[in-house]
């Protein structure tokens, strides 16, 4: 069986859920092997979890450089892991998460391996044919790499993790970073995740638009979200008006969401917003304007003031929960 390499995504000594999803996709094609890139000691903390998630092998690429530089350590480590796994004839694919870093690593690696790339796959079959959801889900496209070892980034949350424990055999690999092409990371600022679910993976999302009117009044959106156990999203107009932080933007240039339930409050439903949410299972919209385009795709639309409807709904949801 050929090997499928999976870049393990980890932070603060913990695996990100997408790693399990990638290992599940890898098992369809061949023998899943994880590649851990990190400071010395990083792999020891993750090995148990990786084996449980399905890694038969764990390529351990540790170096003090791993956290000092952006992207190029992972590129060099994956290249070394491809070699260690037997090279082109033995490696059926390299899978990475479709994050900013994941796509950068994929791009550089593809040139080093002389390979084609597929970005943002939502599914992968046993013959390494990837499924893409294009233009906000308006098209379903399948595509295939025809040159070199396929390098594929996979959307988080798209593949359901089905852990089958693997042997987790650790294999050290060496790599070096060329300082001439290296970007130095001097500081990292991440927000603590908080109590709400991750936007991209949430089962329910409540989003507010320009109609919310101010940052303070976004509490109306948050209260409904919390009653439903939902993530909070925002339109680009709401973000650009300073009502809500950028990382919560939903749409063409923000996060793509596909929850069971999406509630849009004071959002007109511009085509670029719809591109990021129209594959949601159920859509509820509240808007003052009966002609707002969001109603064209809403399963349940309310023509009304969100400051009347949302608090009443919050109350109903809370009381039904008892």
């Amino acid at each position: 069986m050929p090997t499928v390499l999976v870049l393990a995504e980890h932070a603060d000594g913990a695996l990100r859920p997408v790693t399990g999803e990638l290992l599940t996709a890898a098992r369809r094609v061949g023998t899943p092997a994880a590649v851990v890139v990190g400071a010395p000691g990083a792999a020891a903390a993750l090995a148990g979890e990786l084996a449980a998630a399905g890694a038969e092998k764990i390529f351990v690429a540790e170096s003090p450089d791993a956290d000092s530089y952006a992207v190029t350590p992972q590129v060099a480590a994956l290249q070394a892991a491809v070699e260690a796994a037997g090279g082109a004839g033995e490696v059926a694919a390299v899978l990475l998460p479709n994050t900013v870093d994941g796509r950068d690593i994929a791009g550089r690696l593809a040139i080093r391996l002389d390979s084609g790339v597929i970005a943002d796959a939502v599914d992968l079959d046993e013959s390494v044919v990837a499924t893409l959801s294009v233009f906000g889900g308006s098209y379903v496209v399948t595509s295939q790499v025809t040159q070199g070892i396929p390098v594929i980034t996979v959307r988080a949350g798209a593949v359901t993790a089905e852990p089958v424990a693997g042997a987790g055999e650790q294999v050290p690999v060496q790599f070096t970073v060329d300082p001439a092409t290296a970007t130095t990371v001097t500081a990292v600022h991440t927000e603590p995740a908080g109590d709400r679910p991750d936007l991209a993976a949430a089962q329910t999302v409540v989003s507010g638009g320009r109609g919310v009117g101010s940052a303070d009044k976004f509490s109306v959106v948050e209260q409904l979200a919390d009653a439903l156990g939902a993530a909070v999203g925002a339109s680009r107009a709401a973000v650009d008006s300073g009502y809500y932080p950028h990382q919560f933007q939903v749409g063409q240039t923000g996060t793509t969401v596909s929850p069971q339930l999406y509630i849009a409050l004071g959002i007109s439903g511009a085509i670029q917003h719809r591109a990021g949410m129209q594959t949601s299972k159920s859509i509820v919209a509240v808007n003052k304007d009966p002609d707002a385009p969001i109603f064209e795709i809403a399963d349940f639309g309310v023509v009304g003031d969100l400051f009347d409807v949302a608090p009443q709904l919050t109350q109903e949801v809370s009381s039904r929960k008892g």
């Binding site: 308006s138 399948t142 859509i283 009966p290 009347d308 949302a310």
Partner: peptide, 26 residues
């Protein structure tokens, strides 16, 4: 180096019910 195997449009979403708030929409 990469090629499309198949491409198909998805049927557009259809609108469901729409009500006007009379004080009980929530």
């Amino acid at each position: 180096a990469s090629r499309v195997v198949s491409s198909a449009p998805k049927p557009p979403r259809e609108a469901g019910q729409k009500i006007t708030d009379d004080g009980t929409a929530g």
